[in-house]
């Protein structure tokens, strides 16, 4: 046993977890530092001759400068904040609808075999269709406004959330339901106090998995028929080979996805503290 582990052994569990967590975070930080280091090295950052030309990969410094410039002057007549806000609005509305409708639909499918028999087949049938292929159709049906964009984002997210919510209900242990039944609980009580809380961990997993799909669909949604949005910014900038603008937009989208994932993880761990501790 080394001196360090010896020291750890004297501490209580919470403190040990804390220290180990800090070490993990340090490693994570180092990973990002290494990526940034390699990026700086191959692009030169104005200090030496770049290995990769700026048109293909601008240096981190150039990207930071572009970001600063976009902050002040905006992009194509609109502020950077506007582009981010518009994309966030499309994404968040689609997501909120998916959660507000998809979770209850999934819960009902998981609880009632009849509802499942009615609702699940159409959802499963639609699921394999690539939703981006439906975008032209959505444009015809719902116009070139935000509605068609919200729908194309919601289209793959909704079945995912509904199906994972259904699975979450269906995987609640029979013993827990039986225990509640033998304690005199009504069907409604069992739903509200057993099935609902017990399926929360699975519901959260479904939501978090679909965040990345939602961000992907954002790019698809802003492919055509729009003149704002962060993905549109990346797409149009690419046409003019403004790689640094593309990178700023991509990084913002990455940050958006990552931030949302962390947000839901935070909500998850504070609500479903019992998960995985059966």
């Amino acid at each position: 046993m080394t001196a360090a582990t010896h020291k750890l052994a004297e501490l209580d569990d919470v403190t040990v977890q804390h220290i180990l967590g800090r070490r993990d975070r340090r490693l994570t930080f180092l990973t990002f530092a290494a990526i940034l280091g390699v990026w700086t090295a191959v692009t030169g950052s104005g200090l030496w001759e770049p290995l990769i030309r700026p048109m293909f990969l601008p240096s981190p410094v150039a990207v930071a400068e572009t970001f600063w410039q976009l902050l002040q002057t905006g992009y194509q007549g609109r502020s950077l904040a506007h582009h981010v806000a518009v994309s966030l609005y499309r994404f968040a509305t689609a997501f909120l609808i998916c959660i507000l409708v998809g979770v209850p639909v999934g819960l009902l499918m998981g609880t009632s075999r009849r509802i499942r028999a009615v609702v699940e087949p159409p959802i499963q049938a639609i699921r394999p269709i690539p939703k981006l292929a439906l975008l032209p159709l959505f444009l015809i049906w719902f116009g070139i406004g935000n509605l068609s964009k919200i729908i194309v984002i919601a289209a793959p997210v909704f079945p995912l959330i509904a199906i994972s919510s259904m699975q979450a209900v269906r995987s609640v242990s029979a013993k827990k339901i039986q225990a509640a039944q033998s304690l005199g609980a009504s069907r409604f009580t069992i739903f509200r106090r057993i099935l609902l809380p017990a399926s929360l961990p699975g519901i959260f997993t479904g939501i978090r998995v679909s965040i990345s799909i939602g961000v992907t669909m954002l790019v698809g949604a802003e492919l055509t028929a729009t003149s704002d949005g962060i993905a549109w910014m990346a797409l149009t900038a690419a046409e003019y080979l403004m790689t640094n603008v593309v990178l700023v937009a991509v990084l913002i989208m990455a940050l958006l996805g990552y931030g949302l994932d962390r947000l839901f993880l935070l909500i998850e761990t504070s609500i479903v503290h019992w998960t995985g501790k059966d």
Binding site: K176, A179, A180, G184, P197
Partner: peptide
């Protein structure tokens, strides 16, 4: 009243609420 082998407690409730579940439901 049924007592199971294991894993039938309600993890999301405190011990008190687990035991209070029966009277609450009745």
């Amino acid at each position: 009243g049924v007592v199971f082998q294991q894993g039938a407690l309600f993890n999301w409730m405190t011990i008190l609420d687990n035991v209070a579940f029966g009277p609450r439901s009745t």
